[in-house]
């Protein structure tokens, strides 16, 4: 197995619901979904975000579109118009999650 950055095999979009950010991580090819499902556990995602996410992380599976949806609780500095964060609506959490590392088989050719 070799380590690569998640951005090589997935794309994402994120948004807000109050103080919770949601981020959907979508496999770029159907065969990548199993990697996401096995390796992107709620716990690992919580670790990756560190102090950015004060609350728990929930994970939901969407095998039909090869995606995982994460809810990052207490992640937006209060959310809405309350927050003092530049990314008030969690719009770029999508990019942040794609910095994670995943392991893929050595013979996978990924550009």
């Amino acid at each position: 197995m070799k380590k690569i950055q998640l951005v090589k095999i997935a794309h994402a979009r994120s948004g807000d619901k109050g103080d919770t950010a949601n981020v959907g991580v979508i496999a770029l090819k159907p065969e990548y979904y199993e990697i996401l499902k096995e390796q992107l556990t709620a716990e690992k995602v919580k670790d990756h975000f560190g102090s950015n996410v004060k609350g728990k992380v929930e994970r939901f599976e969407m095998p039909n579109i090869g995606a995982l949806n994460f809810l990052l609780h207490n992640a937006l500095g209060g959310g809405g118009t309350l927050t003092l964060k530049h990314d008030a609506q969690g719009k770029v959490v999508s990019a942040n999650i794609l910095r994670m590392q995943v392991e893929v088989p050595d013979d996978w050719e990924i550009k």
């Binding site: 979009r13 949601n22 979508i26 939901f60 969407m62 095998p63 579109i65 949806n69 809810l71």
Partner: peptide, 26 residues
Amino acid sequence: KEQLVYELGNPAEYITPDCIADFTTI
């Protein structure tokens, strides 16, 4: 796909006043 996951909570229970939609069946 990117729009489907936008501002999504539990994908199996997308609650609206008209029905609950299951995004895992799309």
